[in-house]
């Protein structure tokens, strides 16, 4: 439950980081230190350390049940961690609710996207955050801002921002969900399996969008099962194995086979910088 605040990096996995820095004050946009999570007797996360820098895409990979979703839910305020610390821009934060995460600037795009199919793109983009003038919805300003955001992100495939979201393709829906996070001026965008349900061209479109986010200086965490996508889009890779973060570092430290090895066995001799727990 309690971790000594002065020594956040008690485990060895931090050796894998490209910025070995001082352990006392994490400089990354988001830093997870020693986070654990129990579901009753099941330990879903065990003493996890993770750095998520701004302006980079961090791919979180691991087998089914490795704890990827649990980790991002702990960051997003859905699950309270059983122990450990989370640092946001170098300061320790306590994220109890999704609202806390949103207030910090952390946006999460879940697999089910949480869009209302019966509402149009503008209405979804602003859902829960509508602009009003004298109590009346200000449709024009919302529509203009939506168009601006979509064009900033080079989302050029939607015919009209007044189209109902139910009529969009999977890739377009994903783009809308991401654009919504961007429009809220989020600084960290977390995506759970953003390409899982998509075809080839739509996947390319979403990967492009993810790169755009990083180029705009945001931190991005992407969970993916598809290592092709990961190597295409990620700047950094972090591997979870049975609740342990077994390896993390710049994407250049990994190749396809070492990544597979880490995912399936939790260790790989080929990754110089990775250390098994």
């Amino acid at each position: 439950m309690t971790n000594a605040p002065g020594s956040p990096s008690t485990g060895t996995p931090s050796d894998g980081r490209d910025d070995p820095g001082d352990p006392g004050a994490p400089s990354a946009l988001l830093a997870v230190r020693g986070v654990s999570k129990y579901f009753g007797a099941v330990q879903a996360l065990e003493n996890v350390d993770l750095d998520v820098p701004a302006g980079q895409v961090t791919a979180l990979i691991g087998d089914n049940g490795a704890g990827k979703s649990t980790l991002i839910k702990a960051i997003a305020g859905i699950y309270a961690p059983s122990g450990g610390q989370i640092f946001w821009k170098g300061h320790e934060v306590h994220i109890h609710t999704p609202h806390d995460a949103e207030a910090l600037g952390i946006a999460t795009v879940y697999q089910d996207l949480a869009l209302c199919d019966n509402l149009d793109i503008v209405q979804n983009m602003y859902l829960g955050h509508e602009s009003t003038k004298a109590g009346v919805l200000d449709e024009i300003s919302m529509e203009l801002a939506t168009k601006q955001t979509l064009s900033d992100l080079s989302v050029s495939t939607v015919k009209s921002v007044r189209q109902v979201v139910g009529s969009l393709s999977g890739g377009q829906r994903q783009a809308i969900a991401v654009a919504r996070a961007v429009m809220r001026e989020s600084q960290l965008v977390i995506m759970d399996e953003p390409t899982a349900a998509l075809g080839v061209s739509q996947t390319a479109q979403v990967l492009h969008l993810i790169r755009t986010l990083a180029q705009r200086g945001m931190g991005v965490i992407v969970i993916s099962h598809n290592l092709n996508d990961v190597f295409q889009v990620a700047d950094r890779i972090a591997v979870l194995y049975l609740g342990n973060l077994v390896s993390s570092g710049p994407v250049a430290n990994y190749d396809m086979s070492s990544a597979v090895e880490l995912i399936t066995t939790g260790e790989s001799v080929r990754v110089a910088s990775s250390v098994a727990p």
Binding site: D112, A114, C116, L127, G128
Partner: peptide, 9 residues
């Protein structure tokens, strides 16, 4: 349209 989406918003 989607109660869960509304709640999360």
């Amino acid at each position: 349209g989607n109660t869960e989406a509304a709640r999360r918003a």
